[in-house]
Design a protein around this nucleic acid. Structure first.
Lengths: 233, 233
DNA sequence: TAAATCTATCTTGTTGCCAAGCTGGCGAAC
DNA sequence: GTTCGCCAGCTTGGCAACAAGATAGATTTA
């Protein structure tokens, strides 16, 4: 089965180097099987893997084709510039869809990060980041009602959290230490981000403090598609 | 085929939550197939996926078993503390194996990063980082001979690059801006890091300057196993 | 001639059967 | 009683034959 992994590596190199162009038809499974003297099932598994990694797509009865390459956006991970501002600087067609704004049940991890008590109301604001019509990040913010007391009405309108801070009178804020990890998308994330199951997501957990009072304004979890970004730290 | 992805998600949750303990035998393919009323091939694909993600292993004639979970090491990505020093602080059994120290042919990316001219000699030092007998990172440093003129003899002995800087008289240095991306391991990386093909690697590209003169001391590429770390930035 | 239909042959997708490996139990041999 | 060997029945692994979809060209039909 090492043959399979080797062939996958090779095909990915070929696609990245442009030996196969976007939308170009790849050799049929039988052709490749003959060429490499391997059973067709091995080639099938290679093609299935390439599909789930997002490099190709296959159509029954027709063949397998190279998928269009994704855009590569350089993204500054540190610093106190908001996501919206970062994107607009890069002159991409950027927009945000607010998926939900609702009060959540008690969750120890979230409440602990916000320094919130059990009784306190906390709102979850989920937003989908879309660049050039391609969903590229899922942004979930947790906001305490004690800090943003009209959140249930205003939450839907938020596109940039930093802008919202300023509207609420918090002009100087400070990002908290971020935790970064790599995960694979679950079903909901696969659907929202329109990505196959083997596209790793860069998961960033962070928060934001009010500089004056030290109050925790926000705790956030962001999932970035790792195939759309190069990150700068 | 959505059934497959769903089952994979579910089994991963079950394993992470400890519903299946390490080395515990999982239900046989036929048992699961009967339980979920799915063809055995679907279950087979689920188990194959879990294998390549490193969650389980299968033995022909015996069954499928839960893999021991990997250690989770919090790793500070920024800052000017060396990898060796970071590890020793965390009281892990840490060691480094130097795989190679050799002059490289001209490579535009490397030479550009080092501000080196075409004629100049550049050495590549490859090191494997091992924590608790588990290889967890592959560290490739590119060092110009003009800065480290006895590198061909001393390269094999380097375990900590920062220590080597100091030995060579560079006492104050400054990390350059790092680029971060997510990749899957190629064959060499799979073998060295002893990881299956679907463990994402966190690829960190960086460099180091001498603070006094501004000379580029080093350009480095590090591949971390993403399943062994949580990163702090 | 032109349009419709059929068919051969290519593609990817699916399935069921058999091979290979392991284990425990039964029974023959000593 | 003990040991060895055989075999039935489980496991995972692999493959070949078949199904289903697409298409181009020949054939039929109006």
């Amino acid at each position: 089965m090492a043959e399979k992994a080797l062939l996958v590596d090779r095909m990915i190199s070929d696609i990245r180097e442009g030996k196969y162009k976007p939308n170009e038809k790849l050799p049929s499974e039988n052709e490749l099987a003959d060429e490499y003297k391997l059973p067709r099932m091995v080639i099938r598994k290679v093609y299935e893997r390439l599909q789930e990694l997002g490099y190709i797509f296959s159509k029954q009865g027709k063949g397998s084709y190279v998928q269009n390459r994704k855009l590569q956006i350089p993204l500054i991970l540190t610093g106190d510039v908001s996501f919206s501002e970062k994107m607009q600087e890069l002159k991409h067609d950027f927009r945000t869809i607010t998926l939900a704004c609702e009060e959540i049940d008690y969750d120890s991890a979230v409440y602990h990060a916000l320094h919130a008590d059990i009784g306190e109301a906390v709102y979850k604001v989920s937003r989908l980041r879309i660049v050039d019509d391609c969903p590229i990040a899922l942004h979930t913010s947790f906001l305490p009602k004690s800090v943003f007391n009209n959140i249930e009405n205003e939450g839907q309108q938020i596109t940039s959290i930093f802008q919202y801070y300023r509207q609420q009178g918090y002009t100087e804020f400070e990002p908290m230490r971020s935790q970064l990890s790599i995960v694979f998308p679950n079903q909901v994330e696969r659907e929202l981000l329109k990505c196959p199951s083997l596209v790793p997501l860069l998961h960033l957990e962070s928060g934001c403090l009010d500089k004056k009072t030290g109050t925790v304004l926000e705790y956030s979890r962001i999932h970035y598609r790792s195939d759309c970004f190069t990150y700068v730290i």
